[in-house]
Simulated assay, not measured.
Amino acid sequence: MGTVDYESWRSVLLSMPGAFEDFPFGPEWAVFKISRRDNKKAKMFGLMVHRNGVVNLNLKCDPTLAEQLRAANPQITPGYHMSKKHWNTVAPGLDAETMLAMIEDSYDLVVASLPAAERAALGWKGLVERG
């Protein structure tokens, strides 16, 4: 899992509590969302697309961290068709550890925005500090 591999990263995204896959923009755009109680509108935390024969993954990110990640990794660019401030696009070549941390951070940012009862229903413990 050293690079963006659709099936490997799809499995990671779907392993997050309450995560599911949707295709509201067509079959080539897999949107990963967090289900909500009482059938409220689900929240997106990832979007994976095949563009020009390459898999790209969009992930939500803290704006300050997003800038740092982009500066340190040429595979990370401002979010494609997303808010450039709050989303990054990851292209093949990023190391697995950084990719996993980015997926977890994206999930945490979205879950943190949910009401307390919904966070509790997901079994979410809160944002994890990473060193």
Rank of each mutant, 00 (worst) to 15 (best):
R10N: 12
R10E: 09
R10F: 07
V12S: 07
V12W: 12
L13E: 04
L13Q: 07
L14Y: 05
M16W: 02
P17E: 09
P17R: 08
E21C: 10
D22L: 09
F25D: 11
G26C: 06
G26N: 07
P27N: 11
E28H: 09
W29V: 13
W29N: 13
R36Y: 15
N39R: 08
N39K: 10
K40S: 15
A42T: 10
A42N: 11
A42F: 13
M44R: 07
L47N: 11
G53E: 08
G53Q: 12
V55N: 14
V55P: 04
N56A: 03
N56D: 05
L57Q: 01
N58W: 05
N58S: 15
K60T: 01
C61P: 01
D62W: 04
T64K: 11
T64M: 09
L65E: 13
A66Y: 01
E67G: 07
Q68H: 08
A72P: 03
A72N: 07
A72G: 02
Q75V: 02
I76T: 03
P78T: 05
M82P: 02
M82K: 05
K85M: 07
K85F: 01
N88A: 02
A91C: 03
A91P: 01
G93M: 06
A96T: 14
A96F: 05
A96I: 10
E97N: 08
L100M: 03
A101L: 15
I103Q: 00
E104T: 06
D105V: 02
S106G: 04
Y107L: 07
Y107R: 01
Y107C: 07
D108S: 15
D108C: 10
V110T: 07
V111W: 01
V111C: 06
A112D: 15
A116L: 15
A116F: 06
E118Q: 15
R119D: 08
A120M: 13
L122G: 11
K125D: 02
R130C: 00
